[in-house]
Design a protein around this nucleic acid. Structure first.
Lengths: 245, 245
DNA sequence: GTAGTTCGATTGTCCGGACATTTGCATTGA
DNA sequence: TCAATGCAAATGTCCGGACAATCGAACTAC
């Protein structure tokens, strides 16, 4: 096969990252076929003029992504399966947009309210302290798809209605310099109340998919609490899991 | 704080793993408080008689788990939040058991059938070729909780009804030498049919939580396809997500 | 022919060092 | 007082080497 790889030492991009990106592209592109061996690390390092630790670091990052599998005494193989991408902390807006669904958002509520006990507990703030409350209807192809209710701690970001309608909440937070770190999610189902059915153009009692999420930044601070309801005929959660070795 | 750490060089357990386990235990136990600095890597290495790469490998594994955060020029901090554990490729049986729910399984169907088009596509086998079909009712505290319908490729493992009732499917597969690698999951909701309602002691039309999953081993081979329905009043999916840096 | 053994190949672990980059703080200057 | 500069501290990247553990296949012995 003789895959052509090269690194640019004058680039500020780390060498291991350059290599891992080229390998990932080769896998995506099909130049590295599933099941094929990657060639041993020593030889690969010599060919590229890199040290073995650097090459290992590149390979390891792809193993973590689930694209490669290492076998001691055998070599490193490309995983062959319809593996796409592990679950990411993604926003519904981005998901829809990358799926070509042309999302639209209608902001229903954008105000400041005192925190209820539930919200206060989730965000780690005092009860009755001020929090932002945002309610949005998310549409795809003009059809209602989900009703999103979010709470944000005060003084975190400017929640501008126009911006909220043009993009997703996560993108706004990232743009405000917040580095998202982790989130705790709960996915369930229940029957729609009359009010919920009205908002989503469903019948009362129709099954709804629900998701609650608390998102934390890298200091451990809760930056968002959300309660979402989805129309199960229009939306489902789909993701990839990796086994921790 | 002066955390006491030590490694046993005569142990076959890798040094970096010994260290990461001790650090994780210290975090879990509270000896390392959230937000506290971990002390610089150089000094830590010197104190333990290890090299810096080894210490870094230990720390990195905890960063990957979401327990620590590194900041260049600052140090390594313990994440303070109710972070428990990222989503794992776990079995419902194990989940229930570790939650102290005393799971029980009733095998309804355990037979070999020709693969339908849907099953054949999911498992990557020829249509109408033989596959195992397993249907189980999963109970907790004597109450029905989920109805599990699984398909396995032929000649993969012995599917013994008695074993299926005593443990989970994943545990059986692991015991048969299969190394699980990844899975593709879809979670949705829909109204219960009359037959489904009967099996789960629900009303017809009641909302059900559904999950479909295809599991792959490390060679990329599909080893299981499952279609599960859960009672949303009894069960919901709860998990932790990490942002990929 | 079959089972057990040896051996080469490959990844896993670990070391010690070097320099670059980023951050936060103290110092300095206007 | 406030902003710019410089410095120390810490992690990020990279090197070259050494030995151990494991797998698969060829080989040998029965």
């Amino acid at each position: 096969m003789e895959l052509e790889l090269s690194v640019d030492r004058s680039s500020p991009v780390p060498l291991y990252f350059q290599l891992s990106q080229q390998l990932e592209a080769a896998i995506e592109h099909g130049a590295l076929t599933p099941g094929s061996l990657l060639g041993n690390e020593i030889e690969l390092a010599a060919r590229l003029g890199l040290s073995r630790p650097t090459v290992r670091q590149a390979i390891q990052s792809l193993v973590d992504k689930g694209l490669l599998v290492r076998r001691r005494g055998v070599g490193t193989q490309v995983v062959h399966s319809q593996v796409k991408r592990p679950l990411e902390l993604s926003s519904l807006y981005d998901d829809l947009e990358s799926a070509g669904q042309r999302p639209a958002t209608k902001v229903i509520v954008n105000t400041v309210v005192p925190a209820s006990a539930e919200v206060a507990a989730a965000l780690g703030v005092a009860e009755d302290s001020d929090v932002h409350r945002i309610e949005r209807l998310r549409l795809a192809h003009g059809e209602p798809m989900a009703y999103l209710c979010n709470f944000l701690p005060p003084a975190l970001i400017d929640v501008d209605t126009a911006q909220l309608e043009a993009t997703g909440l996560y993108r706004l937070m990232r743009a405000a310099g917040i580095t998202l770190h982790s989130a705790r999610q709960t996915i369930g189902a229940r029957a729609a109340t009359a009010a919920e059915a009205e908002r989503l153009a469903e019948e009362e009692g129709a099954p709804l998919l629900t998701m609650q999420r608390v998102t934390f930044d890298d200091t451990g601070r809760a930056v968002e609490y959300g309660t979402h309801t989805y129309r199960p005929t229009r939306y489902s959660f789909e993701f990839q899991l990796l086994v921790r070795p």
